[in-house]
Amino acid sequence: MARIADTFARLRTEGRKAFVSYIMAGDPDRERSLEVLRGLPDAGVDIIELGLPFTDPMADGPTIQAAGQRALAGGMTLESTLGMVRAFREENDETPIVLMGYYNPIYSRGVERFLAEAKEAGVDGLIVVDLPPEEDDELCIPALKTGIDFIRLATPTTDDARLPRVLENTSGFVYYVSITGITGSAVPEPSDVAPEVARIKAATDLPVIVGFGIRDPESARGIAEIADGAVVGSAIVSKLAEGGPIEELLAYVRSLADGVHSG
């Protein structure tokens, strides 16, 4: 679990917050997706969330749903997603990669096999949005035993009675979903988010990263000022879908990173 913990330790030493970016593996195709993946660290990304394409992404908004469909149409699978991680690790052994997706593809492959392959490929953490804490024995506990962080989501509806259960086996960091609803929702207001971040931080020593709805350097900076970092997903995926030069996409990512790092 060293990469995620080491990244946050380094950022604390530098007095900076964490910028976490999301892309869908294989969107719009494997070659372009891998080129973007490899370019993210130089664009200022501290931790990469790599989406695992799935046919029924119930928590995702239309932007990420469409990205998953493009990836699946191009033949992207769990195996080829892990292959992307391996290819990335040939050039970068420092930037953490967190796979984000749903349990069905993992279950279909077999938990033990998947975890062994993910660890070997260089995966550092998992976010599996459809496995609640009551199902920790399914994947969370085995992942932790394998040395892969299991990152949990907290939301505005995670009350004080529920929060301890959510945090019980969480590791790496806590992902606070700032807005109730699907990905790509409205821009969060830092003044609304700050009390929730403080409430979570009072219950855990883990970093709290805030995502959903961040689209520009200003909103990224505002969130970074009240949390340990910010996640941008749908806005990056949307830019990628426009089909412009990858250099322009990475310049946009750099602007977001600069916003977070100045927060």
Rank of each mutant, 00 (worst) to 15 (best):
G147Q: 09
Y103Q: 13
E120P: 08
G147K: 07
V111L: 14
E94P: 00
D136L: 04
L126A: 03
I106Y: 10
G101P: 10
D149V: 06
G147M: 09
G75M: 05
I127R: 01
R70A: 05
R86E: 15
E94M: 04
R113M: 09
T63K: 01
P96L: 03
Y102P: 14
V111R: 12
A67Q: 01
A116Y: 05
Q69Y: 13
Q69H: 14
L153P: 00
P132K: 14
A71E: 09
T63P: 02
A67E: 00
D137M: 02
A118M: 05
E112L: 09
L115R: 08
M100P: 12
L126H: 00
T81W: 09
D130C: 12
G147A: 05
D130S: 09
A116F: 06
A121I: 14
A118E: 00
P96A: 04
Y103G: 10
G147Y: 05
R152G: 05
L115H: 10
R89V: 03
Y107C: 12
R70L: 03
L78E: 01
G125S: 06
S108W: 10
R89F: 03
N104E: 07
A73V: 09
L153A: 06
T146A: 15
A66P: 00
I97L: 13
Y102I: 13
I148W: 01
I141T: 03
P132M: 14
R109D: 11
T146V: 11
A143K: 01
A71W: 06
L99E: 04
E117Y: 10
M100F: 15
I151Y: 02
L153I: 11
A121E: 06
P132G: 14
I141P: 00
M84Y: 01
A67M: 05
G83T: 02
L144F: 01
L72D: 13
I64F: 04
S80P: 09
V123Q: 07
Q65E: 13
R152F: 03
S80V: 14
T81Y: 11
S80D: 08
G68W: 06
Q65R: 14
E117N: 13
C140L: 06
L82V: 05
D149G: 01
